[in-house]
């Protein structure tokens, strides 16, 4: 039973340069979801799914950790 997709598992066949390029493209695309990310994905705060920075209520501020996320 495969637990990850063929696309995921193909990384082993890539050269270092191909892997770096694939990761770079993926990281570019992943920026689009920054505002929807959970506040923490690692460490001991990762169990907190909602955390609001009071000052985020000010619309002049950049969006930050004021999100409820479905997944880390």
């Amino acid at each position: 039973m495969k637990l990850l997709s063929d696309d995921d598992l193909d990384l082993a066949g890539m050269s270092d340069e191909e892997l770096a390029a694939a990761w770079d493209l993926w990281f570019d695309l992943a920026q689009a979801t920054n505002d929807f990310d959970p506040p923490w994905t690692h460490g001991v705060f990762a169990g907190i799914r909602e955390w609001r920075w009071e000052r985020d209520a000010d619309p002049s501020r950049e969006p930050g950790e004021a999100r409820v996320a479905a997944d880390g």
């Binding site: 995921d8 990384l11 082993a12 994905t41």
Partner: peptide, 19 residues
């Protein structure tokens, strides 16, 4: 560790953070 180590082990591209 964690997600970026998974990338380093060439298993999946799965984390946009580093730990």
């Amino acid at each position: 560790g964690s997600g970026q180590a998974v990338v380093w082990h060439r298993l999946a591209i799965m984390s946009k953070d580093g730990d």
